[in-house]
Nucleic acid binder design. Structure first.
Length: 494
RNA sequence: GCCCUCGUCGUCUAGCGGUUUAGGACACAGCCCUUUCACGGCUGCAACAGGGAUUCGAAUUCCCUCGAGGGUACCA
């Protein structure tokens, strides 16, 4: 109750990715939940790039992350980059040294490695052995004079650390299990735990919402908040996202970055919707919703503690739903990078109309935009690429030839009289006519429709026949029928 | 090893001591619609990790075991 009062006026969340890779699905989920929480509470969201690991961070990754965040429809109120704030961390660390809450450690990394190896072999907890904890003034002076590189370590004092996780409830630690850790690395950059605390205070962060993998860091950070005399923010930890086999989501499970999913043909609406459903559900039980409509219903307290397995089937289902919700004209824009005609950037007026028809015919069959790609391939060629076994089988029937013959003559006449364009209605009328004509031979149903379908697509599945005919146009239909007749001849010989 | 977290259908979850023959969604199976595929509709399949304790009563509270995940860095 009191905590609610405390932050009512000034709620500030932050999202703090490190640019050591693209925007990972799990990181994106954390970003989304921060956005949801901040917006639902009427607070602000800060984006902070944690690029203090000079070796692994890079600007391309940062751009990619920001790009993907924006693509998802997330926005933020303030932006910071830790690499631009290095003096601040140094200054705060010096302060702690002065207060004897931190100290310079001159141990080489070799020594630390050896120490760790030794402790492991003895079956003891690994951790720093406090060698430099109580160096006297002259020892320190001497080391500094020798220009020995040093780190700044925090002096962990015996204490019990407890905090109330907004998702998990009370979590306690004993300082016994935490050894003196590094605040400032020997290259002068701050370590993660230190930079985070200084920044969260500096940026007036009221709520820290991050992944479960940071729970143990929280203990270290709380010690630092106390030692630096800062106010301690609220904490909440989201569960991990796991792969199908229950292990941490990694490349082995397929695509792991938002960029990849975008390229696979997932819509931002679907990604946001699905990710928000990972460890949270609206009370109403809705499964499909827009983020803009849902954040009001979002409550941090309702977030589930269980780890969630990333289920591509459900994402596909959601994505299919959003594809169906889009109009064909919206889809044509989204589809641009996926369509063969879009690839070589020569979309004529006629092509455009064709694509529109094509989208209309296929959009309720498809789970990802990328699936349009291979589908489109078949429709934008003059020839049929290959005949399905089932189609070949259908066309072996005596009556198939008759059907195709009649179909061809109708298309042929239309082509001579009205050209390539043929509307769905006209195509439908043709089929009806053929149906009437062949009634006396008792050719109907499958035996009527399938040969027609197979003769122009080589396939027994697909969109409604009139749609296909209209998409292809009579020119292509005639070419393909001719091709099919040859195919049937050859097929007979075998 | 030590520390922390988590454990409801295959998966995401609802459930907050009696209203529960544990509800919904995805996936799967069947049926209907349909010239086909898909969409849509209907039906079905399927879970409280195990053991104790508290209680008249436990998926819900407590303890133990087991399982999973995370941390234990001059990575974040």
């Amino acid at each position: 109750m009191e905590t609610e009062k405390k932050y009512n006026k000034d709620i500030r969340f932050r999202f703090a990715p490190s640019p050591t890779g693209g925007l990972h699905i799990g990181t994106a989920r954390t970003a989304l939940f921060n956005w949801l929480a901040a917006r639902s509470m009427g607070g602000k969201l800060v984006l902070r790039i944690e690029d203090t690991d000079l070796k692994r961070s890079n600007r391309d990754f940062e751009n990619s992350i920001i790009n993907d965040l924006k693509w998802m429809g997330l926005d933020w109120d303030e932006f910071y980059r830790q690499s631009e704030r290095l003096e601040i961390y140094l200054r705060e660390a010096e302060k702690l040294i002065d207060e004897k809450k931190a100290y310079r450690c001159f141990c080489s990394s070799e020594r630390l490695e050896n120490l760790k190896g030794l402790l492991i072999s003895e079956g003891k907890p690994t951790g720093y052995d406090n060698k430099c904890r109580d160096l006297n003034e002259s020892e320190i002076e001497e080391n500094l004079k020798e220009k020995k590189p040093y780190t700044i370590r925090y002096r962990v004092e015996p204490d019990e650390i407890a905090f109330n996780d907004l998702i998990r409830g009370e979590i306690k630690f004993s300082s016994d299990v935490i050894s003196d850790f590094v605040l400032i690395k020997s290259d002068g950059t701050p370590s993660y735990n230190f930079a985070v605390v200084v920044d969260d205070n500096d940026m007036n962060i009221s709520h820290v919402l991050r992944g479960e993998d940071h729970i143990t860091n929280t203990a270290r950070q709380i010690m630092l908040f106390k030692s630096l005399g800062y106010d301690i923010p609220e904490f909440a930890h989201l569960s991990m996202i796991l792969g199908k086999d229950g292990s941490k989501l990694s490349k082995r499970h397929g695509a792991t970055t938002i960029t990849q999913y975008r390229e696979e043909g997932y819509l931002k609406e679907a990604i946001g919707n699905y990710l928000s459903l990972l460890s949270w559900a609206p009370k109403s039980g809705e499964e499909l919703f827009a983020l803009e409509n849902i954040f009001e219903k979002f409550r941090l307290q309702d977030v589930s503690k269980n780890p969630a397995i990333f289920d591509i089937d459900k994402l596909n289902w959601i994505n299919g739903n959003y594809i169906r919700m889009k109009s064909s004209s919206e889809l044509i824009k989204l589809l641009d990078p996926f369509l063969p005609s879009g690839k070589d950037k020569k979309l004529s007026e006629a092509d455009n109309l064709k694509v529109l028809k094509f989208i209309d015919a296929f959009k309720d069959k498809i789970k990802t935009l990328k699936e349009f790609d291979c589908l489109a391939e078949d429709f934008f060629m003059n020839e049929i690429a290959s005949y399905e076994d089932e189609a070949a089988e259908i066309m072996k029937a005596e009556t198939a030839g008759m059907v195709i013959e009649r179909f061809e003559s109708k298309i042929y006449r239309h082509n001579k009289e009205s050209g390539n364009e043929i509307s769905e209605e006209e195509a439908k009328e043709f089929i009806n006519e053929i149906s009437q004509e062949l009634k006396e031979f008792n050719i109907k149903g499958r035996m009527l429709y399938m040969p027609i379908r197979a003769s122009i697509t080589g396939n027994v599945h697909g969109p409604e026949l009139p749609k296909i005919i209209s998409i292809l146009g009579t020119d292509v239909c005639l070419k393909r029928i001719k091709q099919t007749k040859i195919f049937i001849e050859n097929n007979k010989k075998i």
